[in-house]
């Protein structure tokens, strides 16, 4: 956990250091989008550092498991 936290912190500071001058020059719309991206970023960082299994993109993908399974079964009854 401490290693993860330090890594995330390092990367975040590097990112901010790199982007801050550009951010100041950017248009309002770009800034808005940048801020919008920070939301999922913080969420993901949190679940990474704390190692929780909260809903994530794979939960959405896994919804398709059922239909996919069925299709494969139809295609190749031998498998699974």
């Amino acid at each position: 956990m401490p290693g993860k936290f330090i890594t995330v912190l390092l990367l975040a500071s590097a990112m901010l250091a790199h982007d801050l001058p550009k951010f100041k020059k950017a248009r309002a719309r770009d800034r808005l989008v940048y801020g919008a991206f920070l939301v999922p970023l913080l969420y993901l960082a949190f679940i990474f550092v704390t190692a929780r299994s909260w809903p994530n993109l794979d939960s959405i993908f896994n919804v398709l498991r059922g239909p996919a399974q069925q299709f494969i079964h139809w295609l190749n009854p031998v498998n699974s």
Partner: peptide
């Protein structure tokens, strides 16, 4: 899609999100 003027600005946050996705999913 979002009508950005300077797309390079969001490159790093996007990369960071992908990184976090790669360590939290699957």
């Amino acid at each position: 899609l979002l009508g950005l003027k300077n797309e390079r600005l969001i490159a790093l946050p996007v990369a960071f999100i992908c990184l976090l996705l790669s360590v939290t999913t699957y």
